[in-house]
Amino acid sequence: MDDMMFLTFLATLVGAAWRLATPLIFASIGEVFSERAGVLNIGLEGTMLVGAFCGFATAFATGSILLGLLAGVGGGMLFGLVFAFFTITIKADQIVVGAALNLLGMGLTAFVFRTYYVSTGKGIEIAQPIHIPWLSDLPFLGEAFFRQNLIVYSTILVAILATLVLYRTSFGLTLRAVGEHPKAVDVAGRNVAAYRYAAVMVGTGLAGLGGAFLTLGHSNQFVEGITSGRGFIALAVVVFARWSPIGAFFVSLLFGLFYALQLMLQAQASIVVPYQVLQALPYLMTIVTLVVVRGKGAAPSKLGQPYEMR
């Protein structure tokens, strides 16, 4: 590859990585909130599917992407409400309920899609890339950073907002305390359950948004199982990022980068490695990184545990 080719390759790679990272960024930042409050939601995959489907169905009916995104968030939160009711109010095991919601999300979206949308075939209009004067036309940098749609750009905003909320507001402070010392929060007269509900709502709302991006911001169709395991990857991202929203942003990008690299390297005829090796790379890298950045000191101490009120 000559230099020009290589720069083009890099620019495309970075652009693709960001798009592929977008659903992961939303879902993992959401899950950071949830887990910081002590609620481990392994039902992300199902929640994202619900978001993807609600977003698609709404945009299909109304033609509005904005309404679709709202429906994606709403669908995710509605699903999250079920999760919160079972794990916080009934105090059921979070892993159990999360596993059930994955099944429900997969089953319900596929069942309804199958019943009503089978022969529609045609998709919806998706969010278009924004042309930013001058910036979008920059050589290489334009391709890499400035030819995305608004949903992709909003990931930066979400990461910053999430950080501010989590570390600079009393809501965020209390939310984190709920995951570390719920008793102290309780004694201080705040409602632990309410904070956990709020955290789960933020988490599932963002997961729904991540799912909706797939149908409204990337491909214009709902396909059964369209999330293709992204909900599980998002769980890994959160641990990898040590429960920090900014960390989740960059770790998601890293995943996106590997995913894009894998697809692009396959297309290079000069590379003779079996493509499965490239496909396995991001997963291997996650394991290696977990070993390198060892220790789980950052994990909320009450993660996964229901709180019994006094």
């Binding site: 079972f86 099944l103 429900l104 596929a110 069942f111 019943t115």
Partner: peptide, 22 residues
Amino acid sequence: VPQVLVLVIQGMVILSVVAFAK
């Protein structure tokens, strides 16, 4: 009937077991 119905029922079985146990 779409076969994916089984996933819905399995998910519901787990949720109801949880609820009944409580």
